[in-house]
Design a protein around this nucleic acid. Structure first.
Length: 170
DNA sequence: ATCGTCATATGAA
DNA sequence: TTCATATGACGAT
């Protein structure tokens, strides 16, 4: 079942010591997060940035900085996963339960969803994750401990794991 | 250790 | 239905 298309009301920068991330918001919450280098639309801070979005963005900024510092965010903004399929949403939700500093394999996630053979599909779902970092798909490694893949680039995956004190096998 | 090959789930075209 | 995956297991070398 597939909800209505997402309309991302606004796009805001998230300044960090690792570069400027870009967050996008719909009326339901954070709907996307992208890694630096990302260019933001130069001009518009929409004159009317609702209190709601400002609050969400403040939470996003704090959460992103927490993760980059290897800490667990205390509070997250609501997510708008508009386009996800049921399976993808279940994968993403499961990723959410993976604690900071721990890793899982694609097969682990598949088993947790009671679909032990779906490891490969889990990888695909991870690739479709619209909010990496806060939905921590970087904590999913291959079963042999190797790095696997990452939508934002393997350099980022390695960097994020390093922030959390995890070292994948060479 | 590396490589090829197969089995398999899911999603998009 | 066919194709592509951010997999995993196994066997040959």
């Amino acid at each position: 079942m597939k909800p209505a298309a997402k309309s991302c009301a606004c796009t805001l920068p998230v300044e960090t010591g690792h570069g400027v991330f870009v967050a996008r918001y719909s009326e339901h919450g954070l709907c996307a997060l992208s890694f630096p280098p990302a260019k933001l639309p130069k001009r518009s801070q929409p004159p009317a940035l609702s209190d709601q979005i400002r609050n969400w963005h403040a939470l996003t900024c704090k959460a992103v900085k927490a993760v980059l510092a290897g800490r667990t965010p205390l509070e997250l903004p609501p997510f708008d996963l508009g386009e996800g399929t049921d399976f993808q949403r279940r994968v993403w939700e499961e990723l959410t339960w993976t604690p900071t500093g721990e890793t899982r394999s694609y097969a682990d996630i598949a088993r947790a969803l009671r679909r032990p053979k779906a490891a490969r599909a889990v990888g695909s779902a991870c690739g479709a994750n619209p909010i990496p970092l806060l939905i921590p798909c970087h904590r999913v490694l291959a079963a042999n401990g190797q790095i696997g893949g990452f939508s934002g680039g393997l350099n980022w995956k390695r960097r994020l794991l390093e922030c959390e004190g995890v070292t994948p096998v060479r």
